[in-house]
Amino acid sequence: MSDPRQVIVVDAANVIGAKADGWWRDRAGAARRLLAGIAEWTTRLPESTEVAVVLEGAAKAAVDGTEPSAPRMTVILAERSGDDKIVDVVGTSEHERITVVTADRELRRRVTVLGADTAGPAWLRHELE
């Protein structure tokens, strides 16, 4: 029996902001470090699992052609609201299981209504260790 197709959608701004490590001085650098950790993590996930990382604002500068990448990791740049982009991704996903990583209560409510599960930034940070 094969694993169900799953996508983990990461609210990068929320995950980055959950740890006071000076991210506000270099948002693009913080996003690049998160992408590097997620790229490495995807190698330990089942092949049926994909990860979509949503970047917004100044963190989008992390995508400059030198950013970390992985075969099952997609980086999505939000033109406006990262939360709205995440809701769009969840609403159009054809995956059997969707998990959104965020601590944002309103975003959790919005994606849960669409059938997604949620996990907090601490869960992802633990997974990346």
Rank of each mutant, 00 (worst) to 15 (best):
S2K: 07
S2T: 13
S2Q: 12
D3F: 14
R5C: 03
R5L: 08
I8K: 11
I8C: 12
V9N: 12
V9E: 06
V10Q: 13
V10I: 15
V10D: 15
D11S: 11
D11G: 01
A12E: 06
A12I: 14
V15R: 03
V15T: 07
G17Y: 14
G17F: 12
A18K: 09
A18E: 10
A20D: 03
D21K: 01
G22F: 07
W23Q: 00
W24A: 15
R25G: 15
R27K: 14
R27L: 09
A28T: 03
A28H: 01
A30G: 09
A30Y: 03
A31M: 01
R32L: 07
R33M: 07
R33T: 10
R33N: 12
L35D: 13
A36P: 00
G37S: 08
I38C: 00
I38N: 02
I38S: 01
E40R: 01
E40S: 03
T42K: 09
T43Q: 14
R44D: 10
L45E: 13
S48K: 02
T49F: 11
E50C: 01
E50H: 03
E50Q: 05
V51E: 00
V51K: 12
V51S: 08
A52I: 10
A52K: 13
V54M: 01
V54K: 11
L55R: 10
E56F: 07
A58D: 14
A58V: 00
K60C: 04
A61C: 03
A62M: 06
A62F: 03
A62R: 14
V63K: 03
G65E: 09
T66E: 12
T66N: 10
T66L: 09
E67L: 03
P68W: 07
P68R: 03
S69G: 08
S69K: 13
P71C: 04
M73W: 07
M73Y: 10
T74N: 06
T74A: 13
V75R: 00
I76N: 06
I76Y: 04
L77M: 06
L77D: 06
E79K: 00
E79V: 08
G82F: 06
D83P: 00
D84T: 14
D84L: 06
D84I: 07
K85T: 15
I86L: 05
I86S: 06
V87D: 00
D88A: 15
D88C: 05
V90T: 11
V90Q: 13
G91H: 08
G91C: 12
T92G: 09
S93W: 12
S93L: 13
E94P: 04
E96V: 14
E96F: 12
E96H: 15
E96S: 15
R97G: 05
R97E: 14
T99C: 08
T99K: 13
V100L: 05
T102Q: 13
A103R: 13
D104A: 12
E106W: 06
R109F: 11
R109P: 00
R109V: 07
R109C: 05
V111G: 04
V111T: 10
T112R: 14
T112F: 05
A116D: 01
D117E: 11
T118L: 01
A119L: 09
G120F: 05
P121I: 06
L124P: 01
R125V: 15
H126Q: 14
E127I: 03
E127T: 12
L128H: 09
